Simulated scan of single mutants.
Amino acid sequence: MSDVVVKDSNGTPLEDGDSVTLIKDLKVKGTSETLKRGTLVKNIRLTGKAGEIECNTKKVKGLVLKTEFLKKA
């Protein structure tokens, strides 16, 4: 993997397996789901891009989220 440092909205570095919390309600494209502010997302995976992570939620699998809407839990 490359040396890309992935940071949350507060500038805290994120790593594989971290848990994050949403800081904004997010509509999920392609579904009728909305992820609510304060939702805890566990066991994230880094994608190699500085502004994105991959994760699974209870309702949506294989989700890619922008780190500007996340804070480390």
Rank of each mutant, 00 (worst) to 15 (best):
E54H: 10
A50E: 14
I44M: 09
T47L: 07
E54S: 15
K61H: 05
D18M: 09
V64G: 07
S32C: 11
G38N: 05
V5M: 06
G51D: 14
V28E: 09
T47D: 12
E15Q: 15
K59I: 09
V60N: 07
D3F: 13
E52M: 11
G51H: 14
K27E: 11
T21M: 14
G38T: 10
K49F: 11
T57H: 04
K61N: 03
V60E: 03
K61Y: 09
L26Q: 07
G48D: 06
V41H: 01
L63R: 02
G38K: 06
D18A: 09
F69G: 03
P13C: 03
R45T: 13
V60R: 05
A73E: 08
K27L: 06
G62T: 12
G51P: 00
S32H: 08
L14H: 08
L40V: 15
V20N: 07
K29E: 15
K49W: 02
V4K: 06
M1K: 11
K59R: 10
D18I: 08
L40Y: 12
A50V: 14
S19G: 11
A73V: 01
K58M: 03
K58G: 05
L26T: 11
D18Q: 08
G11R: 04
L63M: 08
V64P: 02
V5C: 08
K49P: 00
F69V: 12
L40D: 08
D25S: 11
R45K: 13
T39D: 08
E68Q: 08
L40K: 13
G48S: 09
L14G: 02
V60D: 01
E15I: 01
D8A: 05
E68M: 08
A73M: 00
T57Y: 02
K36G: 03
K27P: 02
K71Q: 11
